[in-house]
Amino acid sequence: MESFSGPDATTSDDGPPPPSPRARSAEARRDAILTAAATAFVEHGYGATSVDDIAERLGVSKPTLYYHVGGKQELLGASFTLALDAYSDAVEDEAVSGVTGRERLHQVVQKYVEITTTVHGRCLHRVPDVELTPEVRDRLRAVKRKVDARIRDLLREGVRDGSLRSADIRMSTFAISGAMNSIAQWYAPSGKLSPEEIAERLWDSFAEGLRPR
């Protein structure tokens, strides 16, 4: 990867300096490469997509892809990592506010659906994990466990505070996670519903079934 050091890269009492123009340019190129790769994997499948296809889509050479990210498996792993980082951050305590378990679960659903409708989120749910390196596969499973545990905790919290009803926390978690993950299979950016509208309609379906009686 490109790096930059020099007078502009020193720290100050005000904190670290902003990235240099060269660093920003390298990051932008890397983002463009990962977006193009994830888009190709979503549209044509991982197995049917070659590095040549991704390079042609971007109008660059194969060595450029290898320089900024790596080969095909590295491209896939980097796309998955972007989505996994976002999912992990979305369920952290500081990312979820609200008084009741119901309010907090609603926010998790909104954030999760938003991530799932990104190209990296769709790539994560559409490409089989057998294509991943062991390290990325392990991270994928760890984040899945983290998200499921967070949903279970919020369901229990809602039951305790009276804002939710669930006779079976485990089954409710499976139903919510499964419904949110399935969005990646049919969502298209050109569709009639925005990610926000999808999240709200999905939440309405969940909330009705979980409404206290």
Score class of each variant (00 low, 15 high):
125 H>E: 15
180 M>V: 14
147 V>G: 01
140 L>S: 11
21 P>M: 06
68 H>S: 07
140 L>M: 13
201 R>K: 09
85 D>F: 02
207 A>L: 11
55 A>K: 07
121 G>H: 05
89 D>S: 06
130 V>P: 02
165 R>V: 02
8 D>C: 04
154 L>G: 02
65 L>E: 00
145 R>A: 11
208 E>W: 14
206 F>V: 13
48 A>V: 02
50 S>K: 01
19 P>M: 08
162 G>V: 06
47 G>M: 12
154 L>H: 01
21 P>Q: 07
210 L>M: 15
124 L>M: 15
26 A>F: 13
9 A>L: 06
48 A>D: 15
6 G>V: 06
112 Y>A: 06
107 Q>V: 10
153 D>H: 12
133 T>S: 09
49 T>P: 05
147 V>I: 08
144 K>E: 14
188 A>S: 14
32 A>M: 14
67 Y>I: 01
62 K>P: 03
152 R>L: 04
89 D>T: 08
44 H>F: 14
20 S>Y: 02
128 P>M: 07
60 V>Y: 06
91 V>R: 02
31 D>Y: 03
136 V>H: 03
5 S>K: 14
184 A>V: 04
113 V>M: 08
183 I>F: 12
80 F>L: 03
38 A>P: 10
124 L>S: 03
106 H>K: 12
147 V>Q: 03
146 K>P: 01
165 R>F: 13
209 G>F: 10
64 T>K: 05
39 T>P: 09
84 L>F: 06
182 S>I: 02
149 A>N: 12
25 S>C: 05
174 F>G: 08
111 K>V: 05
34 L>D: 07
152 R>V: 01
57 R>A: 07
8 D>N: 07
127 V>T: 14
190 S>V: 10
190 S>N: 11
84 L>T: 03
167 A>G: 14
17 P>G: 06
19 P>F: 10
161 D>A: 08
158 G>H: 03
128 P>G: 09
32 A>G: 11
13 D>Q: 15
128 P>Y: 05
147 V>W: 04
153 D>L: 13
20 S>N: 05
170 R>D: 15
209 G>K: 12
36 A>K: 14
73 Q>Y: 03
84 L>Y: 05
97 S>H: 04
95 A>P: 03
154 L>T: 01
67 Y>W: 09
205 S>F: 11
84 L>P: 02
68 H>W: 09
72 K>V: 04
4 F>M: 08
62 K>F: 04
4 F>P: 01
26 A>I: 13
58 L>W: 00
211 R>G: 09
17 P>N: 09
86 A>H: 04
178 G>H: 13
207 A>T: 10
197 E>P: 04
84 L>K: 01
113 V>L: 12
86 A>F: 00
